[in-house]
Write a protein that binds this DNA or RNA. Sequence first.
DNA 1: CAATTTAAAACAAACGATTGACTTAATCAT
DNA 2: ATGATTAAGTCAATCGTTTGTTTTAAATTG
Lengths: 220, 220
Amino acid sequence: MRKNPKHTSDAKQRLMDAGLDLFGKFSFDGASTRMLTNRAEVNLSAIQYYFGGKEGLYRQIVRSIAVEVGSLVKPRLNEIEIQLRENPSPEQGIELFCDLIDFLIGQFLGSPRTQKWLSIVVREQMEPTEAFDVLYDGFLGPIFDCCFRLVSAASGASENDPEVRVRTYALMGQLLTFHISRASIRRNLSWIDYGEDEVKAIRNTILGHVRTVLHGNGDR
Amino acid sequence: MRKNPKHTSDAKQRLMDAGLDLFGKFSFDGASTRMLTNRAEVNLSAIQYYFGGKEGLYRQIVRSIAVEVGSLVKPRLNEIEIQLRENPSPEQGIELFCDLIDFLIGQFLGSPRTQKWLSIVVREQMEPTEAFDVLYDGFLGPIFDCCFRLVSAASGASENDPEVRVRTYALMGQLLTFHISRASIRRNLSWIDYGEDEVKAIRNTILGHVRTVLHGNGDR
DNA sequence: CAATTTAAAACAAACGATTGACTTAATCAT
DNA sequence: ATGATTAAGTCAATCGTTTGTTTTAAATTG
């Protein structure tokens, strides 16, 4: 119908930005519609107008996270998938896994924008709503599937082996802590935030662990 | 005031049990006073009567977590502290650290009661209120301080070395994931819950990682 | 009876949602 | 081009509900 959408506004995007911030900080119940519209500097009824309600806004934000993170991560996963088809050696598998972790650390600990996503993702992990499926299908599942295959390639065991999967979760858990335990870490290391140096320190440590573990995985 | 304590009710305890469940599941804002009193099967006004309000109930619950977990964990930490005074070898440091992790896994992944605590603790970690200080002083701080010393003993570096602390957080992060990522893990491993076998598998993997990492910590 | 708990009703404030008036911009018949 | 029409977007006012809290009265206990 509309040929020239010149008349369209940015209220929609402003609400989604505000929601990403406030839902992340205060959770769904903790962020009220008035909070959201004040932060976005839009009228109270804009939420109903654009998203059909508070829940619709939340769903839309989660969907956009899934799409954005998915398209950020999937090209990298596809590259790895291709290299996995050529039956890489354990050594090569380890390095591919380390590259991926390196990439994920850079994306999710370094950048302030992707940090905001994580709070919502973690909340959905702890107490899943229907939104969790969107996140899982969008990028959580693909990332973990790829990790399983990489750890499998590095260790020789099947990617369906529960041991491989538990090992993968444990290794990936090293990343998660640095997002969740920010409050503790600030105290213990007197870091104000994760700057370039801090991310580098975290990256070195985690990659060191991953290499050590996967190289010596036969010693149990 | 109260002459005969036999007359005292269990309404107080029932409210705290309900709060532990519901605050953990739905967060502070998500759990309403009516939810809480219905679950506890007490009158609505009991929250004000016993705790001075919803926030008072939350504070009391957090305080009780801090005390209970603290008294559960501190004897173990003190034992370790004593053994640390005798300048243990790196090998001994590693085994002490593994014993502690083993203990923590058993307590926090195995037992359903302690699982409930973790949700509240994680929430406070991600977005700290004043309650975080109570938890930190009660057990989070002591646990991490002890872990720092153990990793220091295992690696030779100072316990104040940022590298030791980052390494410690990374290693401990392996535990945290298995609480937070329950939803993902259920899908990937088709585990219904963490039974005896599942905890054993997690324990073996994590302890294997810790030993491998701390034994080969010079290879970077 | 007197002191202490419970039960139910009522409270103001905040919640998410809805309404209808209003402005702005694109469309179309003349 | 002009003026009427329609659609898109904004806004203040207000809706009915639920929130946490308070009040009032009845019940229970020693």
